[in-house]
Amino acid sequence: MLASFSAGMLKLYKRPAAWGLLLVALVLSQIFNYLVPYAGYLSADNERAAEQILASTMPEYLISNSIGGFPLFAGALALTLGVLSVGSEYSFGTLKTMLIQRPRRLTFFAGELLVLAVAVLAIVLSIFALGALTSYTIATSLSNSIAWPSLSELARGVASGWLILMTWCLLGAMLAFLFKGMAMPIGLGVVWILGIENLIVNVAAALLDFADTLQVGLPGVNAGSLVSALGGRSDAPGVNTAVDGTQATIVLVAYAVVFVLIASVALQRRDVT
C-alpha cells in the first residue's frame, strides 16, 4: 500500500487543480472569517457594535472561525477534491495503466484513500494556520490581549474539521467510482451539499414529519451540528444545533465508512474498460 500511497502523493502534489482547490479554500476562509468582519468593524456606526464584530476575529475564536465554513463551501471543495482524484483516473483512462502495474485494486484504493486523508488534513491545517496568523496580526495591530484556544481544543477542532471534510471528500470519491467520471459526481455532490440538504432542512422539515425526522440523519446537518458543538455560531450558513457533538461525530464516521465500502465494492467488482 505504501507504493500506491507514494505514487498517489506524487500525482496529487504535481496537480495544479489540487493546489487551486487549496487556494480557493484559503481565500474564502480568509474573506468570510476575517476580511468581511474587519471591513465591518472599520465601517461600523457605533463603537460597541464595532468591538463585537472585531471580537469574532480574535485568536480565541480560531476554531469556530476555521471550521465554520466546512459544512458548506469547504465541504463542496473537499467533495471536488475526492471527485478529481478518483474521477480523473476514469476520464484520463489511467486506471487501467496503473492497475496493470502491480497493486491489487483494493491496495490501489487504500493508497488513494490515504492520499486524500493527508490532503484533507493539509487543507484543514492550512486554514487553521493562516487563520491563526491573520487573527494574531489583527489582535497585535490593535494591541488587544491574545488568548489562544488550548492545544486539546485545537486538536479536537482540527480532528472534527478533518472528519467533516473527509466525509464530503469520500462522498465525492464514491460518486466518482460509481459514475466512472467527473462531471456527474461534481454536479450531484455540489447540488446535494449546497441545495438539497438546505431544502430538506429549511422547507420540507417544516411541512412534513418524515423530513423533520430525516434531517437529523443527513451528513450536512451533522457536520453543521459538529461545528456548533465546537463553538461555531449556529446562525452561520450550514451550522445548526440539530444534534449533539457526539452523535454528529458518530453519524459522520458512519457515512465515511459506508462511502468507503460502496466505493470499494464498485472498484473491486466492475470491469475496467
Binding site: 500506491s4 484520463f92 502491480r102
Partner: peptide
C-alpha cells in the same frame, strides 16, 4: 502492457508519469 491507447496524466511530464508508474510497480 500497453492496452489500447496509451493513457497517462496530461498535467505530468513524461518523466513524472513514468515515476508514478514506477512507484505503483515498485
Amino acid at each position: 502492457a500497453l492496452v489500447e491507447s496509451p493513457a497517462f496524466y496530461p498535467y505530468l511530464s513524461g518523466m513524472d508519469n513514468l515515476r508514478v508508474v514506477a512507484r505503483y510497480a515498485s
